[in-house]
Write a protein that binds this DNA or RNA. Structure first.
Lengths: 248, 248
DNA sequence: CTTCGCCGTTGATCCATGTCAACCAAAAAA
DNA sequence: TTTTTTGGTTGACATGGATCAACGGCGAAG
């Protein structure tokens, strides 16, 4: 297929129109004709090994990245060394949007496993957005979705208790695995307890204890990073049904 | 002045090029020629009385709003009634970006005082972005800035202690008042202790106590909503210099 | 195979912040 | 003006999650 296209650095020309992640990624919802025009958008792919940075806070912003394989975390660091995981990203999700604002990345993106991303030059994206009907809207939706997601995390951090936070986290992971064709009830977490804790505003011990409690109560099965959701309804109820009188 | 321009519903034709908030608002950084083309962007102004909603979660998304006068809060509400203030917005700032993602607003925007906004039809914004060089980038920057701001709030909620959160909040307010030509050291908060608490993930009593402590320590002067910053360096130090060994 | 280091679990204790309650001050209503 | 309502302060006490510490197991490296 597409034999006439020059071979890229990574051996295969990247093409959104040929990618099985379209449904999850930037081009979601775009017409076929628009989609074809998109193939020039993705310049190259880039492999990032586990624990390596895709970019760091302070790096000049030049491109955004679509995750083709693997997963990442993003975190921000305070001068005094405290840091906070601001998100976990899976295939099809977009990284790097934080850089547009100032032209400099404001957080770190680190691969949680050996991963690969599509490099999307921001200059090219801007240019193409003027031409390709639909791309602009899609891009705006991606950014807006990130804002809405962030508001959800604020809600979680600002007004939920430890077990509620973890339940919300697990349900969210499940939903995202499902969207990618994996089991909704059984999955492998790529991040450590400490990283989960940082994301949820909790200490790793608290995360571990909450996992154990959930297991005792028959809500989930835990073996290290391998999770089975046994009672999603129960988890959902846990989030809504706070202890009488209003939570924190 | 501007006698030749037709009188709009609100008595004055809105025009970005004539607005003294350009420096803070969407058109920031755009060329004069671009700016002139923008004047058709703002359809109308809308007055919102104190405590009234500019929009509600669930409302269909049609426009974004630039604050011309006054201030707002945005909040999200969980099914069980718990709610969380996700931000406070001042003149020149943009509201409504959350709606692009799904076509439906995902949070409430409420005026903290009698306010006025410029209504920017999103459809028109999209259209103009294709034509006006520079508008697209500016809009992207506005969205990206919101994402970066949200990450800062996550940091605050996830890894700072009560007094650190309040200090960060006060310094942030001061900085934003300054950008609007008001005193950096003395200002009037438009929101209640409860709203501040909700934003910072704290109870109103905790906010009140932190204010009192700051006052005792000579860092600030408090009289109800009227705040004087007496020792901004001290406040800044408070944020960085956590209790030995790493905070929460 | 063995060793080492990281990650996760669990227990005991402490403390920051939540909760409950009383009271006061300012602003709004009458 | 007086009354009422709302918002803010402060105290006493309760508690969820942090902290400190010990230990166990899996996986990587040799």
């Amino acid at each position: 297929m597409r034999a006439s296209v020059p071979i890229s650095v990574n051996g295969l020309k990247t093409a959104c129109s040929q990618c099985n992640l379209v449904e999850l990624c930037l081009p979601f919802g775009m017409s076929d004709s628009d989609l074809d025009q998109l193939d020039e958008l993705v310049g190259a792919r880039r492999k990032v090994k586990r624990q390596q940075n895709l970019y760091r806070a302070g790096d000049p912003f030049e491109a955004i990245y679509a995750i083709r394989a693997g997963s990442f975390k993003t975190d921000v660091v305070l001068e005094d060394g405290r840091d906070q995981v601001t998100g976990f990203q899976m295939t099809g999700e977009i990284l790097g949007l934080d850089g547009i604002s100032t032209g400099t990345h404001s957080c770190n993106a680190v691969a949680l496993e050996d991963s690969e991303v599509c490099v999307i030059s921001y200059a090219k994206l801007e240019e193409l957005s003027h031409k390709v009907e639909g791309l602009q809207l899609q891009f705006h939706k991606v950014m807006s979705r990130e804002i809405v997601r962030d508001h959800g995390v604020m809600m979680l951090l600002g007004s939920m208790r430890a077990e509620e936070r973890l339940a919300a986290f697990l349900l969210n992971m499940s939903q995202r695995f499902t969207a990618r064709g994996f089991s909704a009830a059984e999955f492998h977490l790529r991040m450590t307890r400490e990283e989960i804790g940082s994301y949820l505003g909790l200490k790793l011990e608290t995360v571990s204890r909450a996992f154990s409690r959930f297991q005792e109560e028959g809500l989930i099965g835990v073996q290290q990073k391998h999770i089975r959701l046994l009672d999603t309804a129960g988890l959902r109820k846990l989030i809504q049904h706070q202890t009488a009188g209003g939570g924190r």
